[in-house]
């Protein structure tokens, strides 16, 4: 299945096996789950959340400043 990750306004298509979770998506992107929050649509979701084909998952980065 294909889902879309949105990072800092940029969208990226990612192919994952059916039944994958947010954690699998982050793993595929090489993103440490500790460094982001994730939102589907307009709802904060946990990294254990199952994904559906066509999902758009926003990665809200935790690291900022200097």
């Amino acid at each position: 299945m294909r889902v879309h990750a949105i990072r800092q306004g940029k969208q990226e298509a990612v192919d994952l096996p059916k039944g994958s979770t947010v954690k699998d998506l982050l793993g595929k992107l090489g993103v440490n789950p500790e460094t982001v929050l994730t939102a589907r649509g307009e709802r904060i979701i946990l990294e254990t959340a199952p994904l559906q084909a066509g999902d758009r998952i926003e990665l809200i980065r935790v690291i900022s400043g200097g």
């Binding site: 980065r61 900022s64 200097g66």
Partner: peptide
């Protein structure tokens, strides 16, 4: 995010 506090996520 939950409290709607305005902040910038820019990194130096």
């Amino acid at each position: 995010v939950l409290k709607g506090i305005p902040y910038s996520d820019a990194e130096c």
